[in-house]
Design a protein around this nucleic acid. Structure first.
Lengths: 347, 347
DNA sequence: CGCTTTTTTGCAAACGTTTGCAAGCCTGGG
DNA sequence: CCCAGGCTTGCAAACGTTTGCAAAAAAGCG
């Protein structure tokens, strides 16, 4: 140890420093680090060498200020407790990194939050784009984003305002698929446990189930609200199965609630899944595949959704497109052990 | 459609605009938005009004460039599939927001990544601090951070280099606690399923178990590596229980692996948990409380760890402290149904 | 009311880049 | 050998703030 010079005053090595050492101008340095700029091989080499020696890296913030592009994408997300979101976040971050962007996170508990206020805060960084995961944007703010030319995409949440891009899974189709499946399985009393009523995913999944049943002149046998929480789902299960004439199948608005439903049925009510009652979820989070639950569920592919989100975002940022884009990705029903499988149902 | 004026005038309202409208100088505007600066009530009011009318908000990037403080904290994280991390991320983000900071995420798959390279990239943003979740930093880079005055704290990972702050749970103590508990429960053959060998959490948990056993002149009966993955844990379980003289208890390095262990024991090997074998995990992620697993586990409190992390970070940023700080938070063993509870064990 | 002390205010420089422009340098063709 | 045309390069202005300094205004005081 000892004679380790702590990079001198070390504070920050600037383009001017490199320029001086390389015997060129600061502009030259800048151009070397700007892909596609006009520099001769000679200066490029000199500059790179000097930069290397000094440990120079361009200051992104300064660059952002002049170019107006920060290469930061804002991400607003309400919860991370549904494993679907961490997975999406991980993939999103990785994918964007590959394009040279980074994610600036903003958590906002749905309830408490004046989402708009939060958003305004995040917009103070000159972000290049915005992903709203499971959170809505007021049309007022959407308008402001448009005026600022700030691309926005809603992730796993749609809304009527057609001016903003959105990518979701095809929740209606998924719900309908579940209806078909449960009817084919011979279930007579099909119940539904809803998520948070304000969510478009919730609405669409229920709608899908409803129209799916309607196609067979059936309707939802009973309904309770679980609010997308474990506790809510347990309570909803008690409500549904404590009543007369209990369901023989239940479609649960998402997987984490479905786990609680299964546990409640088995351990609190002493019922057998799937013998006494079939349970179907939505999302196909990793835990759905765990043998303890073996949850039959509609797959919502984080991978596909993220891919679409990234494409949309990048295209909008690079101004390849201006019209908003709305994507709903269909996903298969994954057959496992939590629901009776109809005779001859295609595996 | 049609007459969509791209970015309109609307683009960006600057301090000069506000100044003009309020009939003051740009400095005055700046001071109004700088807490603690010297401004009279009169101008403050005028400026605020003008700012409100124009929808002005200070450009954080410009501010960052001049002050050198970006109010951005970099977060490097390897995986988000262990629910402990999303929870930590959520809490960390929320806590930092309350202090006026935001998190810039950087994902780096442990294996693939030249973590240093990644880090260098993240440092291009003039971040004010760095949190490394479950990822190490080379001492070379640590030195550079120190030279730059960039606070770094390791989250859930410690390393020998005593110059960098770290907050972990007290993994050794936790492991020891498990040893005591399993011995008191009368188990004769206590096995261990390890995580990824490179992880300090893994090492320390195993060390704790070992010394705990040693205190009773015992040692680990058998050991296999699960690598912190579900598949790895399942394979490890098969290896351990396929051999002669199988364990009657197993301590698993973290909860997600423990779930896979329990499932494998029950569904693949037909063993009963806890009657045939006791299983103990580490972390106490939410799923550990789900009745299907009812996992007995050592609690690692994300809340407490995040609180310590934030304190450390903020103190270091505000230069209240300069010496690194190393915290290990002790956590209780949470008793549930996956392991036999010794007679008279304090609940 | 005049003088001193304090507070408020504007000017201008600075932060570290990028970029339009014009000058300088080559290269090569006639 | 000269000149046109194309590459390279440096200069200086710009991006939107903050901040030291000194001038101006307000306040305090005898």
């Amino acid at each position: 140890m000892g004679r380790r010079e702590p990079t001198g005053p070390a504070s920050r090595v600037t383009a001017a420093d490199v320029a001086r050492r390389a015997g060129v101008s600061a502009s030259a340095v800048s151009r070397v680090f700007t892909p596609g700029a006009s520099v001769s091989k000679g200066t490029s080499d000199k500059v790179r060498k000097a930069a290397e020696a000094l440990g120079y890296r361009p200051n992104i913030l300064a660059r952002a200020m002049i170019t107006g592009k920060s290469r930061i994408i804002g991400l607003v997300v309400a919860h991370l407790d549904n494993q679907f979101y961490p997975e999406a976040l991980e993939r999103l971050s990785t994918a964007l990194q590959a394009h040279g962007y980074h994610i600036l996170v903003f958590m906002t508990a749905q309830a408490e939050a004046p989402v708009d206020e939060v958003l305004r805060g995040i917009m103070d960084y000159q972000i290049d784009g915005l992903v709203l995961a499971s959170v809505s944007i007021s049309s007022d703010l959407a308008e402001r984003c448009r005026a600022l030319g700030l691309p926005v995409v809603l992730f796993n949440r749609s809304q009527d305002d057609a001016r903003v891009s959105a990518v979701t899974s095809d929740n209606v189709s998924g719900g309908r698929r579940v209806a078909e499946f449960l009817i084919a399985g011979g279930h007579r009393r099909i119940a539904y446990i809803a998520g948070w009523e304000g969510a478009s995913t919730q609405r669409d999944r229920e709608l899908g189930l409803t129209v799916g049943l309607m196609a067979h002149n059936r309707e939802i046998h009973a309904r309770a609200v679980g609010g997308f929480t474990t506790e809510g789902a347990a309570a909803a299960t008690h409500a549904l199965f404590g009543a007369d004439n209990p369901p023989d199948a239940v479609f649960v608005a998402n997987d984490i609630m479905a786990f609680a439903v299964i546990d409640t049925l088995r351990f609190a009510l002493g019922l057998s899944v799937p013998d006494d009652v079939s349970v179907v979820g939505y999302d196909d989070v990793p835990a759905a595949a765990w043998p303890a639950y073996a949850l039959t569920t509609v797959r919502q592919s984080a991978e596909a959704m993220v891919a679409e989100t990234v494409t949309t975002l990048i295209e909008e940022i690079e101004a390849t497109r201006s019209a908003p884009r709305r994507v709903a990705i269909d996903g298969p029903l994954i057959l496992r052990g939590s629901a009776r499988i109809p005779e001859g149902w295609p595996q």
